[in-house]
Design a protein around this nucleic acid. Structure first.
Lengths: 111, 111
DNA sequence: TTGGAATATTCCTGTCAAGGCATGTTTGCT
DNA sequence: AGCAAACATGCCTTGACAGGAATATTCCAA
């Protein structure tokens, strides 16, 4: 089951990030999400569909209601993408320190 | 200098991620990026502008050419956003193991 | 099997972003 | 000053997406 949508575009929307934040705590039904978010139900359903296409979310059917659950493993893709940049942080921190040293110089200019 | 664009929407575009990947290695001028990416120059410039609005990138002017440089620190925001989900991975891994155990059961059903 | 609750889907509209093309701007060179 | 290189910006068209409203679907209970 290959995802039909990439994680990056899925989390680009603020509302969808809100949904993920909620699902981070616990599984939730659509109605609960609607109430928590204060959005229209069709709107929430559509965002859930998008999250589902990215496989960031998983459904558990329980009678007439559907419980959505976070699939955190898909966020590992993000984690992995981030990896190469982590190394850069260390280098840049050195640069920042040198920069802060320059701030002690009263003639230094900043904007 | 508060960013006028969030990191999430900035990295949502594949081309922009490609650019970041290139800048991960070293600072590059627009012309170099154009050649590496095989895209039209105005196109690349516009993506660089977008990355700049998210402050994911920094310019160094050198005569007529502009060298763009990665600002990895802005990706920390992503890292921080990811933090709450990291904890979920551990829990979910337990569930996965239980799931795999069930796979040994020949009567177990899967779709 | 009829009704209602919970949710999904469709249609419509406005907005925004990407790509292509043309043009403006700055800089260095002569 | 004039020209060319290196970029940026503006305009246009097209496609994708978000939000709203209405409608369809699925399920359970009586």
């Amino acid at each position: 089951m290959v995802p039909t949508r990439d994680v990056f575009s899925a989390i680009a929307d603020p509302t969808r990030r809100q949904i993920l934040d909620l699902l981070c705590q616990r599984e939730m039904a659509v109605g609960e999400l609607v109430e928590s978010l204060g959005l229209a139900q069709p709107n929430v359903s559509k965002h859930l569909r998008t999250l589902g296409e990215a496989e960031l979310v998983q459904v558990r059917i329980d009678g007439p209601r559907r419980h959505y659950r976070l699939r955190a493993d898909r966020l590992r893709e993000l984690e992995e993408w981030l990896a190469p940049y982590r190394r850069v942080w260390a280098e840049r921190l050195d640069a920042l320190e040198r920069h802060l040293d320059q701030l002690d110089d009263p003639d230094h200019e900043e904007n």
